[in-house]
Nucleic acid binder design. Structure first.
Ligand SMILES: [Mg+2]
Length: 487
DNA sequence: TCTGGGGTCCTAGGACCC
DNA sequence: TCTGGGGTCCTAGGACCC
């Protein structure tokens, strides 16, 4: 088997060498004989971890369900003054837009972009479809985000590289057929190298790193590409002249740990050497649930802060209930106008699902976390979670509350806790809203204002649809379930 | 109109127990 | 009575992931 290119070539060469239409990207060939018996390879039996990462996922879902957007720059994220980019289509990335960039900056760099709010319910539905396809083909899946997951297929145990490649192509095609979306796939002897490989395969590609060639592939890459190296670790390494993973691998464990701490240092030293025996396993229960919000303008009075604390506690509590858990620890998080963040937490003797108790604790905690100036963000985090059912066997009965979460509306809760009433969902049309019309069908709001609303009527299956401008108060125009756009 | 929201894991100090 | 070491839990802060 001939390598399309050697792993020792510079990275830019890797990128350029791949034809635009290629779906195969062979990074290196069979392992050299002296690499076969590396100790972490199960006595020489190849271990194949596969990483699937959907391409520009949020933006791609928008382009899929709103066909007019295909081929156009799309930004998904916070649309308010303080929003950031959560997803950008490749067309938008060409303008230098990146995830986590302030939306205001992204708009400046890419004025032609269509800017849309997140539709998490749609992304979640598509994500479930993607990874149930993967689960069918590959077995247990460790999902690490809505759009990416690891798997270690039993059928690839001890397989040669050609079999892995065949498997990868099959999986990618299946995902495309059932979801209409492209995902890039990487495979290698461990999670780190598989994830690096999927990154090299992007967009819409496949990349397999031969067993024993991990270090060669990693060496020229910047340290930032390693899982666990963020801005701080990157800066610390740069200060001592370490820019690439190869340079990191050349340091002693002692040097790395003294720079990055004991745990991270040992882990990163091993990863830099291509040593990665972390297992692939389905994720269990979440260890915490939280809700936080950043205000359009900083809050300046205690009453608004208290209202927000109640609202965030109720929000987190709702998810606590849907996951059938109870919480022992409440943490309140407060970010001031100067962006410094303070948190206060309290752990009770027993776990609870009682929202009144949770709100009381949160309200007690927040007062000691307030900054001198305005409040930018309020968050409430519930942790120390146990199964609510299991808990009820041992706990004294939940104390009587005047309103239970099942009988009270959020507005009633807000009133009980002296919070401002939650604004009615009756709000003007906004770009990105899903709508339906008896004559024109399902659509989405492109723009609104001056008593007019511009709607694009289309879903995934309609192809690019017509745009119509209606009066904002048109009784025929009503809100619709975003999931309908998947039809 | 600088800097979202939902998570995981680590560190370090003090309390407390043995 | 004094000193000390180890383990665990709690709290606050922070790095990092997408
Ligand atoms: Mg992705």
């Amino acid at each position: 088997m001939l390598a399309r290119l050697s792993a020792a070539q510079p990275r830019t060469g890797v990128r350029r060498a791949r034809p635009r239409t290629s779906q195969r990207h062979q990074l290196s060939t069979d392992p050299a004989p002296h690499h076969r018996a590396l100790p972490w390879l199960n006595d020489g039996v190849p271990r194949w971890v596969v990483h699937l990462d959907m391409d520009a996922f949020f933006a791609a879902v928008e382009q899929l369900t709103r066909p007019t957007l295909a081929g156009r720059p799309v930004l998904v994220g916070g649309v308010g003054a303080r929003g950031v980019v959560a997803g950008a289509s490749y067309e938008a990335r060409a303008y230098g837009v990146r995830s986590a960039m302030p939306m205001s900056q992204a708009r400046r760099q890419c004025p032609s972009a269509v800017v849309l709010p997140l539709r998490l319910s749609v992304y979640r539905a598509v994500s479930e479809r993607v990874f149930s396809v993967v689960r069918e083909v590959a077995g247990p899946v460790e999902q690490v985000a809505l759009d990416e997951a690891f798997t270690e297929p039993a059928e690839l145990w001890g397989a040669d590289q050609a079999a892995v490649e065949e498997f990868g192509m099959r999986l990618r095609e299946r995902v495309r057929r059932y979801t209409g979306l492209a995902g890039s796939l990487g495979a290698g002897s461990g999670k780190q190298i598989a994830k690096i490989a999927s990154g090299l395969a992007k967009p819409d590609g496949l990349c397999i790193v031969a067993q024993g060639r991990e270090r060669e592939v990693l060496a020229p890459l910047p340290v930032r590409r390693l899982w666990g190296v963020g801005p701080v670790a990157e800066a610390a390494l740069r200060r001592v002249g370490v820019d690439t993973i190869g340079a990191l691998a050349a340091l002693s464990v002692y040097e790395v740990t003294s720079l990055l701490g004991a745990t991270a240092g040992v882990a990163l030293h091993r990863l830099a050497h291509g040593v990665d025996d972390r297992t692939v396993a389905e994720r269990g229960h979440a260890k915490q649930v939280s809700a936080e919000t950043t205000f359009e303008a900083d809050l300046g009075d205690l009453a608004s802060v208290r209202a927000a604390v109640t609202e965030m506690t109720i929000h987190a509590h709702r998810r606590l209930l849907t996951s059938a858990r109870s919480a022992r620890t409440v943490t309140v998080k407060v970010r001031g106008a100067d962006f410094t963040t303070r948190s206060r937490s309290e752990t009770a003797v027993t776990a609870t699902t009682d929202v009144v108790a949770l709100v009381d604790t949160a309200q007690r905690l927040v007062t000691s976390a307030l900054p001198g100036s305005g409040v930018r963000l309020i968050g409430v985090l519930l942790s120390g979670l146990t199964s609510a059912a299991q808990q009820s066997l041992f706990d004294e009965p939940t104390r009587a509350t005047p309103l239970t979460p099942t009988t009270a509306t959020p507005a009633e809760w807000a009133e009980w806790h002296h919070a401002a009433p939650t604004p009615e969902p009756e709000r003007p049309w906004r770009a990105g809203d899903d709508v339906t019309h008896p004559d024109y069908g399902h659509g989405w709001v492109q723009g609104a204002g001056h008593d007019r609303v511009t709607v694009r009527f289309e879903t995934r299956s309609t192809g690019p649809g017509p745009v119509r401008t209606l009066t904002a108060t048109d009784p025929n125009l009503t809100r619709a379930d975003p999931l309908t756009s998947l039809d």
